[in-house]
C-alpha cells in the first residue's frame, strides 16, 4: 500500500533521513520506533507532503507521491494525526472537525460522520462549541484523532500519539488506534513508547540516526537483544 524507497530528507545541511526503505501492507498496523532525532517525524512529514524529500521516492497504491502536495496526498487517502496534537486552539471542537473534512463535499455523509465521532468520543460532543485550546491534553488527542478520521483515510499516520498524555489516556489512545485498524484502516505509527508499540503492531521498523537498523514482527523485535538493551531496558 505504502512504500518508501531510499528516502532521503534534509533540513538545510542536516540529513535527518538517510536512505530509508520500508513497506506498509494494506490492513496492517506498522510501528516506526527509535530515539529522539532518529528521523521518525521527518519521515511522516515527507509522506504527508509537508517536507519535500531530497532523494528517493514514496509510493502509495502504485502512485508516486514523492513530490505531491499535502492536499493531493490527503485526497488520495493518507491522513496524519500530528505530534503534539496540533488542534486549532481558537477554533471550536466542531470547527476543528470541519477542517478534518475540508476536502469532502458529501454533506450527508459528513453529517453522519459527525454523529459517529460524537458517539465514539462523548467528551467531544459535550464540548463541541468550546475552543479546542481549552480542552485537556487527552481530549485534544481524541479531537486530533477524530479530525484525521473525518477525511475517511485509507492510511492513518500517527506521530507520537502517547506523548505527553496522562497514563489513563495513553491506554485509551492505543485502544482507539487498535480499533481504527480493526475497522479496516491501515496504520503507520511513530512511537517512543517502544514496548507498547511493538506489542500492538504487526510489523515494526527500528530507525537509528536516520537509517533502518532493524525490521521484523513486533514479537521478533521484542526478543531482539539489541532492542531489549537499548529500547526496552528495565
Amino acid at each position: 500500500m505504502l512504500e518508501l524507497r531510499d528516502l532521503v530528507c534534509r533540513y538545510g545541511k542536516v540529513t535527518a533521513v538517510k536512505g530509508l526503505s520500508l513497506k506498509v501492507e494494506r490492513g496492517q498496523l506498522v510501528a516506526l520506533i527509535g530515539t529522539n532525532g532518529a528521523g521518525k517525524t521527518t519521515t511522516l512529514k515527507a509522506i504527508s507532503g509537508l517536507l519535500p524529500p531530497s532523494g528517493g521516492s514514496i509510493w502509495f497504491d502504485g502512485v508516486d507521491i514523492t513530490r505531491a502536495s499535502a492536499r493531493k496526498i490527503l485526497s488520495l487517502g493518507i491522513a496524519q494525526c500530528p505530534e503534539g496534537r496540533h488542534v486549532f486552539p481558537y477554533m471550536t471542537v466542531t470547527e476543528n472537525l470541519e477542517m478534518g473534512c475540508y476536502l469532502r463535499t458529501d454533506k450527508q455523509e459528513i453529517a453522519a460522520d459527525f454523529e459517529r465521532m460524537f458517539e465514539q468520543f462523548p467528551r467531544l460532543a459535550e464540548r463541541r462549541l468550546q475552543p479546542a485550546g481549552t480542552l485537556s491534553g487527552g481530549e485534544q488527542q481524541m479531537l486530533a484523532i477524530a479530525r484525521a478520521l473525518m477525511s475517511r483515510p485509507k492510511l492513518m499516520l500517527f506521530d507520537e500519539p502517547s506523548l505527553g498524555l496522562a497514563p489513563n489516556f495513553v491506554e485509551r489512545t492505543f485502544d482507539i488506534i487498535t480499533n481504527i485498524r480493526a475497522n479496516g484502516t491501515t496504520v503507520l505509527m511513530v512511537e517512543q513508547n517502544a514496548l507498547a508499540a511493538l506489542e500492538m503492531c504487526d510489523h515494526a521498523y527500528l530507525l537509528e540516526s536516520g537509517s533502518l537498523a532493524l525490521s521484523g514482527s513486533g514479537a521478533e523485535l521484542i526478543d531482539n537483544p539489541h532492542v531489549r538493551s537499548a529500547y526496552l531496558a528495565g
Binding site: S48, G49, L50, S69, A70, R71, L74, S75, A79, Q80, P82, H86, F88, P89, Y90, M91, E95, E98, M99, G100, Y102, L103, R147, S151
Partner: peptide
C-alpha cells in the same frame, strides 16, 4: 474564513487538512 483562521493558527496542520 475558517480555512484562513486555521492557516493562521497552525500552518502545517492546515496544510495537512488539504488547505492550499
Amino acid at each position: 474564513g475558517k480555512a484562513m483562521r486555521a492557516t493562521f493558527q497552525d500552518r502545517d496542520t492546515a496544510a495537512l487538512m488539504g488547505i492550499r
